[in-house]
């Protein structure tokens, strides 16, 4: 009984169905464990956590230079930059806008630098449902290859104050 004290030596090895289930569960746990390093080496989608310390002002300057060099247009006051050939691209999250809008080329590989200059934000690329955490002070680098084209919206999915649900952005991937 679970409410009474067991007496004497109650040690016993599991047997029968119980032993079978423990064995089966353990095998499943090991499979799930191995799946992660397996995907790390053989899968194409990994969150490596690659990041560098960065001051908010420095990151902002890098974003400004990036926009200045590559701006082609503007949507609703947000600059649009076009980077057709891969390489380093920048995205700044701050209350309550993602900028710039990124115009990319399908099949290219980009090193997306994303950071915040105020609170924590959540980078969420829809409808793909790709999500990464964005922290002030961290230059978070996500190496991504755009395997599909189209217009992808960015929202913020980390609470960042009362205007959190106005914080959007966009990535346009061209064929």
């Amino acid at each position: 009984m679970s409410i009474f004290s067991p007496q004497g030596n109650w040690f016993r090895y599991p047997e029968g169905g119980e032993r079978m289930w423990i064995g089966l569960a353990l095998v499943w746990c090991i499979i799930m464990f191995i799946a992660m390093p397996f995907w790390h080496f053989f899968g194409k989608q990994n969150a490596t956590g690659e990041s560098y310390t960065v001051e908010a002002r420095d990151f902002e300057e890098r974003v400004d230079r990036f926009v200045e060099a590559n701006q082609v247009d503007e949507i609703e006051g947000v600059p649009v930059v076009e980077v057709p050939s891969g390489g380093d691209i920048y995205l700044l999250g701050r209350m309550w806008q993602w900028e710039p809008v990124l115009k990319l080329q399908k099949g290219e590989t980009y090193r997306l630098h994303v950071s915040s200059t105020d609170l924590q934000h959540g980078l969420s690329i829809l409808p793909l449902n790709i999500n990464f955490q964005v922290l002030p002070g961290y230059d978070h680098v996500i190496t991504m290859t755009t395997t599909t084209s189209g217009t992808f919206d960015i929202i913020c999915n980390e609470f960042c104050g009362v205007g959190h649900h106005w914080m959007t952005g966009r990535i346009i991937v061209e064929e």
Partner: peptide, 8 residues
């Protein structure tokens, strides 16, 4: 997951 963009 395998349908997403390649991410590293």
């Amino acid at each position: 997951l395998a349908d997403l963009w390649f991410l590293n």
